[in-house]
Amino acid sequence: MPVVALTDNYTFPSRSRQELYGDDQLVHVLWKGNRMMAAAATFRAPKAMPWADFLGALVDPWAASDPDYVPGSGSGWTLDGQPLQPDPGKGLAELGVGHKSLLTFEA
């Protein structure tokens, strides 16, 4: 249903659209079953960033907020609801991770 507006052609661009992040994109990461983390985290990451770097540089430091976290121990990854077996050398976009994709893991 469209907005009921005073003027015709009520259209505006998204304020979070991918082009505003250049070669990067936003990626959400949810640690399933961990009740310490109140919500999923959002990161800004280069589309070409290899999976291993994404884990080491972004996910691990965040997940280490919980002192029980063992770096690299995430398993059972999903991408936008589908199981994901990430190749550590492949880039995020290559793995199918898009702008505002949701990754989940368990640890």
Binding site: R35, A38, A39, A41, F43, W62, S65
Partner: peptide, 28 residues
């Protein structure tokens, strides 16, 4: 204990996505 990062936000209410499924208070 601090969340060392930025949270995922809801596009409408803008609250961090902390709310859980109805009837399942352990699943975000």
């Amino acid at each position: 204990f601090f969340f060392q990062g930025l949270p995922q936000l809801c596009q409408v209410c803008q609250v961090p996505m902390l709310f859980t499924e109805v009837g399942d208070p352990e699943t975000i």
